[in-house]
Simulated assay, not measured.
Amino acid sequence: MSDTASLGEFEFDCGESISDLTLAYETYGEFTGDNAVLVCHALTGSQHVAGRRRRSDTAGQAAAWWDDIVGPGKAVDTNDYFVVCANVPGSCYGSSGPPSEGPDGEPWGTRFPAVTVGDWTRAQRLLLDELGVPNLHAVVGGSVGGMNALDWAKRHPDHVDRVLAVATGARLDAQCLAIESIARRAITTDPDWQGGDYYGDGPDPVQGLALARQLGHVMYLSKSSMAKKFGRRSAGMDAARDAFELDPAAGFFPYREVESYLDYNGERFAERFDANAYLYLTRAMDSYDLAGGYESDSEALAAFDGEALVVSFTGDWHFTTKQGEELAEAFRATGTRSAHHVVESDHGHDAFLVEPEHVGPPLGDFLDSGVRGSAVSDTVERDEGDDFAPVHTSLFSS
């Protein structure tokens, strides 16, 4: 079961404040003074990072979402490390956010202040103070959780020794921003959204949220992975989901496996997540810019004097290997000991969640030994005339 911490008055980057910020969190392992590892969850993740048998208020993909990576004897070994994972402000798994109770006893809804990745970092710092953790051995995160990890190097460079940024980048590109904007419109144009005031006995904006998640799934998979998983195969009309009304001509055409997959997962997601929280969290991710307030990414990271590992995946077009290399270059430009580990994978963005055999070894090695151990300082080759030519090269020496 998750614990909660009341952190008192909190002013968000937008200038608005709430009187008592609550964070839901979980810890794993024992704190020995210098072994704390903060794990930052992705967009719709939760504080329940590991322990499938541990009681939790989460469900679906948010439950024990990195159980293959975090735990006794695993890459992030809780026999050695004290792991902390907190649900970020603006989410819906116990931390203060749109569905939580406001000062009038009613859910905040869209009255909740706008949140940023920087707010997440500052809230985590307050939580660690509450837990008596002054400094972190490492902070690790994937996707927008990786942005959160980067923000630690930017905002609290003296409080963390190692940064592990997985399947992430310094900012989103225009294509991803465009898709995220359509996803939000899917929610806000659902009549059941009601301007964000849908809490209570009335209907929830299930269809809008499900459609938003479907767009997310398309972003998280690669062309090749979708071709292998679904192709153009028909699932049969009996597989059509009741939640989505089909057009009259649909009966003449195949209801394809890819449609069935998206409909099923969108519907299941809408059962466990809050539509307003999805709006808030995607806005936070979209707005993040590592260089914000500085002239460049490297200048933003200049005060960090620890070590950094960037992990990217060749099939990921949400955060590409090119973006990973640009991030690694920003660290190198500051003199930071760093490595860029490129994983050859056709799975897509979700590879960091579903391919622990590729993610665990470099993470565990870096946590234990940094770039001085069996890890090499770079895993990228450049061909003359190419901006970036990634190759799959292990961090480990042969």
Rank of each mutant, 00 (worst) to 15 (best):
G141M: 04
P157I: 06
L177W: 11
P103Y: 04
R111M: 06
A114S: 12
A86L: 10
G97T: 07
V117H: 06
L128T: 01
V163Y: 01
E130H: 14
T110F: 05
G105E: 10
P134F: 03
G105D: 14
V139D: 02
K74W: 03
R155I: 15
V144L: 09
H137D: 07
S91E: 08
S100H: 03
T78N: 05
R125D: 09
V144N: 04
V144M: 13
C85G: 10
R171W: 12
V139L: 11
R171G: 03
G141Q: 03
L128P: 04
G105V: 11
D80S: 09
A165E: 00
Y93M: 11
A149P: 01
D80N: 09
G105R: 11
L177V: 15
M147Q: 10
C85N: 13
H156P: 05
D80L: 05
D161R: 13
V133P: 01
D158T: 15
A75T: 07
F112K: 01
C176G: 08
P113T: 10
D80V: 00
P157V: 08
D151E: 15
A165L: 00
C92K: 02
V139A: 06
Q175H: 11
V115Q: 04
C176L: 12
R155S: 12
V133H: 01
G109R: 02
Q124N: 11
L126S: 14
G169H: 04
R162F: 05
P107W: 02
V76W: 01
N87D: 09
I179A: 11
N135A: 13
H137N: 05
T168V: 08
A178K: 07
A165K: 00
R171M: 13
P72R: 08
V70I: 15
L126P: 07
Y81W: 13
H159M: 08
V160M: 04
I179G: 06
V70P: 05
L127Q: 05
T116A: 10
P157S: 11
P72Y: 11
S95P: 07
V83A: 06
L177H: 15
L136T: 01
V76P: 02
K74R: 14
L164G: 02
Y81R: 04
H156M: 13
D104G: 07
L128A: 06
L131Y: 14
V115I: 14
V115L: 09
L172T: 11
D161A: 14
P157F: 12
L131W: 13
D151F: 06
R111H: 10
P113G: 09
F112C: 02
A123L: 11
V160W: 02
I182D: 08
G118D: 09
D129F: 15
V139N: 03
G145S: 09
N79H: 09
V166P: 06
D77N: 15
D158F: 12
V84M: 13
A138C: 11
V84A: 10
T110H: 00
V133C: 03
D80Y: 00
R171I: 00
G102D: 07
E130K: 15
G142Y: 00
G90M: 14
G102W: 06
A170E: 03
D158M: 12
H137L: 03
N135D: 12
H137W: 04
T121R: 10
R125E: 10
G90E: 10
N87F: 02
S96W: 03
E180C: 10
D104A: 12
A153K: 01
P99D: 03
A114G: 04
E180F: 14
W120L: 00
G90F: 13
D158N: 14
V76M: 09
L136N: 02
D173R: 09
A174T: 12
